[in-house]
Design a protein around this nucleic acid. Structure first.
Length: 571
RNA sequence: CGGGGCGUGGCUCAGCUUGGUAGAGCGACUGGUUUGGGACCAGUAGGUCGCAGGUUCAAAUCCUGCCGCCCCGACCA
């Protein structure tokens, strides 16, 4: 295509609203424009990238037995009430009313809609297994949309749903998708890692996230060097400490700790270490107040607490609640004499002796408190957040942490949705069985953003060839008749040989074209200028390395094809 | 939800403290000179200063409310 006829509004200056690299470059290179917070228009160049990614996804999904369908964006509240997610999903669900005041939502994901379809039209084990997918616009009213396509309120997502006769079959379906995802992100040119993940609002028994490793990633992952364990920190297991204290319990004492509210302040005040402290965090759940105990140097993992208790909602208690439970302001809560029965604790608390805890009285703590003698705990569990340096739960070396962008997520759903919605089929014996489900998502726009995060330099984007908007950017460097003629001929012959070429045929100075080409980031540039033509050559320049080859224009189409990835050459 | 910041031509921003005829650079358009890394000269067009109300002889500027956008935080007791 020709630049003079395409809408590619590149920006010379950095837009004020963009913070991270991918967002900035997408705006500057003319890929996207914002319509509202977290809502974007895809311009021609941006859409080409989206389509490239979608195409790779379709090929790999189809190859793995998926079949494409398309579900509506709007769905009625009734379906969501059946699974309880009309309430459970909370404020993130984009809700709308029709003219009759009936509730609808704009789908953030489509388990309800697909399960409704399957329960109506799939009756027999003969129709299973089934894997249906779609690439559709999704809506999530994010608490904080940010970073352009990285976290939008409206975004394009591939979502797939598998239905199997039994657990065994479901595992197979899951594995197929897991493998397909490996191929998809590899083909997109990404450096990524599959990690164990929390299942969040989707639910189900287990899941893996596909994380693109990048500094700006919103997720933290932990992993061991041996590669035996990698997980989202929300989920990462923390092993109980190997050692338990053998100290002799000393008598409990109440001591003044004026103004010492934080672990830091208390340790300074009492000249001790966080390892000898037990923090008491008070939470409110929809039904009760709850105390969670962790060692002073540890952090409560709220995801784990929610999961343990089956809660959708968990918030730290406000000052009022804290006062009611402890009789003290925030900062002095402790398990001794606390006005709640529900006290749960992290494993690490169990082996401690003679610890410091809050006194449930202003400016007061207890020292030499001991479990069972001075306070009791109704349940021990893994409730803390894993951190760098912890032993790997799979026995490998110490855990490390990294940042990741979640581009894909695969879930083993089990029968959560089929049960709630009655998606059953008849097995060979004529017995009614619940379909066993899985679901699998990929953020298409986020994948594009992640690719830019991993592939750019100071001048602009450096697209991996398979998802580049064009393979080659042809720059005619002057308006002379010779250059125009040669460029046109080359443009035609490149198209003939199947190369996707963007020809900058504008009446612009060479510098402007160079800068735009570097910004837009096609993997290769072809420069045609009067100097080169006088010697019978054009220049082929690799965007990534800046390496230049001079060759006669006639040889270029042939040569260009050899540079393109196998899968593109084949098309 | 809390805190902070911003909203002035297509873009980046100045002007606001101390009210008095709305500015710059880039971009666009016209003509000319240029032409291998964001040219130069001359000229032209383009803004209800986010919206509403208030104070004032007079408001981009002061006050109030609302809307939009960006960033940080959302409690580790």
């Amino acid at each position: 295509m020709r630049t003079s006829q395409l809408l590619i509004p590149t920006l010379r200056e950095d837009p004020g609203e963009a913070e991270v690299v991918s967002h900035r470059l997408m705006l500057r290179a003319g890929l996207i424009r914002k319509v509202a917070a977290g809502v974007y228009t895809y311009l021609p160049l941006g859409l080409r990238v989206i389509r490239k990614i979608e195409r790779i996804i379709r090929e790999e999904m189809d190859r793995s037995g998926g079949q494409e369908l398309l579900m509506p964006i709007a769905s009625p509240a009734e379906l969501w009430r059946e699974t309880g997610r009309w309430d459970f999903y909370g404020k993130e669900l984009f809700r709308v009313k029709d003219r009759h005041e009936r509730d609808f939502c704009l789908g953030p994901t489509h388990e309800e809609v697909i399960t409704d379809l399957i329960r109506r039209d799939v009756r027999s084990y003969r129709q299973l297994p089934l894997n249906c997918y779609q690439i559709q616009t999704k809506f999530r009213d994010e608490l904080r949309p940010r970073f352009g396509l990285m976290r939008g309120r409206e975004f394009i997502m591939k979502d797939a749903y598998s239905f199997d006769r039994d657990e065994e079959g479901a595992k197979l379906s899951y594995q197929k998708m897991y493998d397909a995802y490996q191929r998809i992100f590899t083909r997109c040119g990404l450096t990524f890692r599959a990690v164990e993940a929390d299942t969040g609002l989707i639910g189900g028994s287990s899941s893996h996230e596909f994380m693109v490793l990048a500094e700006v990633g919103e997720e933290t992952i932990v992993y061991d060097e041996e590669g035996t364990y990698a997980a989202n920190v929300e989920r990462a297991e923390a092993l109980p400490p190997a050692e338990t204290s053998t100290e002799t319990p000393r008598p409990l004492r109440k001591v003044p700790t004026p103004g010492a509210r934080t672990v830091e302040e208390v340790t300074v005040c009492l000249k001790t270490t966080p390892l000898r402290l037990v923090k008491t965090l008070l939470y409110k759940t929809p039904s009760e107040a709850l105390a969670v105990l962790v060692r002073g140097d540890h952090e409560v993992n709220e995801t784990k607490v929610k999961k343990l208790l089956g809660l959708a909602d968990l918030t730290l208690a406000d000052a009022e609640t804290v006062a009611a439970l402890t009789g003290a302001p925030i900062g002095f809560a402790g398990p001794i004499g606390l006005r709640t029965t529900r006290i749960i604790a992290d494993h690490a608390v169990k082996g401690l002796r003679n610890v410091v805890v809050g006194g449930n009285q202003a400016d007061t703590h207890y020292v030499d408190a001991n479990l069972d003698r001075d306070f009791s705990v109704s349940q021990f569990a893994d409730l803390r957040t894993a951190r760098a340096g912890d032993p790997s739960p799979r026995g490998g070396g110490p855990l490390r942490t990294a940042r990741g962008i979640e581009v894909g997520h695969v879930f083993m759903l089990g029968t959560k949705y089929s049960k709630a919605m009655g998606a059953t089929f008849l097995d060979p014996q004529g017995r009614e069985r619940l379909a066993v489900m899985g679901c699998y998502g990929i953020g298409v726009g986020r994948t594009a953003a992640a690719a830019i995060e991993q592939h750019h330099d100071a001048k602009g984007i450096i697209w991996p060839a398979p998802i580049a908007p064009f393979h080659l950017h042809l720059l005619s460097l002057s308006q002379s008749a010779e250059v125009s003629k040669a460029a046109r001929a080359l443009y035609e012959s490149l198209i003939q040989s199947g190369v996707e070429v963007l020809w900058d045929d504008r009446d612009e100075r060479a510098g402007v074209k160079f800068n735009d080409a570097d910004l837009i980031g096609a993997p290769y540039q072809v420069l045609i200028g009067d100097k080169g033509l006088a010697q019978g050559t054009v220049e082929l320049k690799e965007r990534k390395t800046g390496e230049v080859k001079r060759l006669p224009p006639g040889e270029l189409p042939q040569h260009a094809r050899t540079l393109l990835p196998q899968e593109i050459r084949a098309t």
